[in-house]
């Protein structure tokens, strides 16, 4: 029974890649290097039965995953590390217990609720604050500018990822031995300087593991993002500048949800399984890297406290 995980993970790889194989075969490297996923899906959906597997291009989706996950991991790390420092260093035993409960609650809020709040609160807010009719007209040729866009996805995702960062960072910070802090104090360093120059560098492996696992959660998060992302895999362009943030996006995971209704077509199903295959590889990479980072730390350090 202890081998169940091995069997299951092997089955997942086999079945996902088996289902994805026709589309990967038909698309070749174009799968990762070209766009047009949305039209390809609707074309494939209406294609007559028995037609050959069409090529798909997921560049827009990959860019969507990279951007939404990358930016929100960055935001979540900045916020999460700060929060972890507060929990461990500034607010005493009771305050720490309270804030840890808050972080756990935030982590336990289901992603569909995050999506709902995003849809009812964040999307209208982003639309009102950043988007004008003039802008909508200006970009009409490229994409439809609404509140459902990359920025909204980033806002929602950041708060979904942050609890993971806080949890692991706080564990790592708490595991830094007091003797290292005392070294700093003995040099006449103030409390925050000790945290900044000694505690955080010593806790780095755990903090990085937290960020990586957070990024993993961000890549895989499907429902909430699918509700606020706009559902179109626009390929970002340098010419849009910051407007890229206001363009609709469609990360790989959200694409699986958004296009699931077209899965009656075997080709569309194959395309979605290709997304899943890519996500599978990404997810495995993130968790393996997190594992290597948190374990590959020399003796005497503070690699402790990393539990995930």
């Amino acid at each position: 029974m202890a081998g169940a995980s091995i069997v299951v993970i092997a089955l997942i790889f086999v079945f996902v890649f088996y289902k994805a194989a026709p589309v990967i075969g038909a698309s070749g490297v174009g799968l990762a290097l070209s766009g047009g996923f949305d039209t390809q899906v609707s074309k494939a959906f209406y294609a007559p039965a028995g037609s050959p597997t069409p090529a798909f291009g997921m560049l827009g989706l990959i860019a969507g995953t990279a951007l939404s996950c990358g930016i929100s991991t960055l935001c979540a790390s900045v916020m999460g590390i700060g929060a972890a420092v507060t929990v461990c260093e500034f607010c005493g035993r009771r305050g720490a217990a309270f804030f840890i409960a808050v972080v756990r609650l935030l982590a336990a809020i289901p992603s569909v609720v995050f999506g709902l709040i995003g849809l009812i609160v964040v999307v209208p807010l982003v639309e009102r604050l950043f988007i004008t009719v003039d802008m909508q007209i200006e970009y009409l040729d490229y994409f439809q500018m609404t509140g459902r866009n990359l920025l909204s996805s980033v806002v929602v995702l950041s708060f979904m990822i942050a609890p993971t960062v806080v949890s692991l960072s706080a564990d790592a910070i708490a595991a830094v031995p007091d003797s290292l802090r005392e070294t700093g104090y003995a040099f006449g360093m103030g409390h925050f300087r000790v945290i900044w120059k000694i505690v955080l560098p010593s806790a780095r492996p755990g903090v990085i593991a937290g960020v990586l696992l957070g990024a993993g959660r961000g890549t895989g998060e499907a429902i909430a993002v699918s509700m606020v992302c706009g559902g179109i895999g626009v390929i970002p362009s340098a010419g849009f500048g910051l407007m890229n943030l206001l363009a609709p996006t469609l990360p790989l995971s959200a694409a699986i949800i958004n296009k699931s209704e077209a899965m009656g077509s075997g080709h569309v199903a194959g395309a979605l399984f290709s997304c899943a295959a890519l996500l599978l590889v990404l997810g495995a990479l993130f968790s393996l890297t997190a594992r290597v980072v948190s374990r590959g730390f020399g003796p005497g350090g503070s690699g402790g406290g990393i539990k995930a």
Partner: peptide, 22 residues
């Protein structure tokens, strides 16, 4: 706090366990 920190700056301390930073 600053006075204490300045005092500590003028006093070197070596601990029981060697404690280099990582």
């Amino acid at each position: 706090r600053r006075g204490t920190e300045r005092l500590r700056r003028g006093i070197g301390m070596v601990f029981q366990q060697p404690n280099p930073l990582p």
